[in-house]
Design a protein around this nucleic acid. Structure first.
Lengths: 116, 116
DNA sequence: GAACTAGTTCGATTACAGTCGAACATACAC
DNA sequence: GTGTATGTTCGACTGTAATCGAACTAGTTC
């Protein structure tokens, strides 16, 4: 759970590994899938550091597949998620990942999807 | 193939992607396997930057499984391999990977296998 | 040429991961 | 209470990857 004590407006956070529990091999595995890598990259480059809903970034997949990928990203410790009403708000755990794996998120920012 | 033209003592290099062709998602995928991550880490920390044979670092797997993993490491662009007589000599492509993905190899060096 | 060694290939098995449709749960608006 | 929207779960299917034994290849030593 995020560092500060939960208040009313901060409840609804989904379970996530603590900073010290984030494993490099889990993060690398999550990011090795181009679809997830693209999601994280979009949040880093275009979300402006604020929470965005799942539908903010269009994922060309059925809902169940999207749910699967968001779960992988959260459980690996890359994304933080909380429910607000109907929708899930997501952010990249930039502070945690920069502390644990300095430079990794810069590589994600610099990555470009392979041309079709 | 390595940048300089092959001479007699440099023949035997196995096919590998050119520096510009090394893909982040391929490298992350190769490194997401703890066995391979451990191999690369050992070469970075203990090989002293010189070529070492496949058997220099004991991999607790049958030969065919080891062949499989070495192939993944080479084809992703992480390891460079060449045959000398019977054995394969391996090095981490540190210069290439530092140029392409600055900081990534430091994360590998800093990684520690999960306690059993 | 035989024996030994490092490593490969093949094919099969197992495990894991990505895929998705259908049914479902929940929050919200009216 | 109904309708709509976001997202989940379940189970099944498909694809990918790790596993390994057996047979094999090639280099080296004697």
């Amino acid at each position: 759970m995020p560092a500060q004590a939960a208040t009313e407006s901060e409840t609804g956070y989904l379970p996530e590994p603590a900073r010290a529990e984030i494993r490099l091999e889990k993060v690398l595995s999550a990011l090795s899938d181009p679809l997830r890598l693209n999601i994280v990259r979009a949040y880093l480059l275009d979300a402006g550091g604020v929470e965005r809903s799942c539908s903010w970034f269009a994922i060309d997949r059925p809902k169940s597949t999207r749910t699967h990928h968001w779960k992988v990203l959260r459980e690996s410790g890359i994304m933080r998620q909380r429910m607000v009403g109907l929708e899930k708000r997501n952010t990249v755990r930039e502070e945690d990942l920069d502390a644990r794996f300095p430079g990794l998120l810069d590589l994600v920012r610099a990555w470009e999807p392979e041309a079709e």
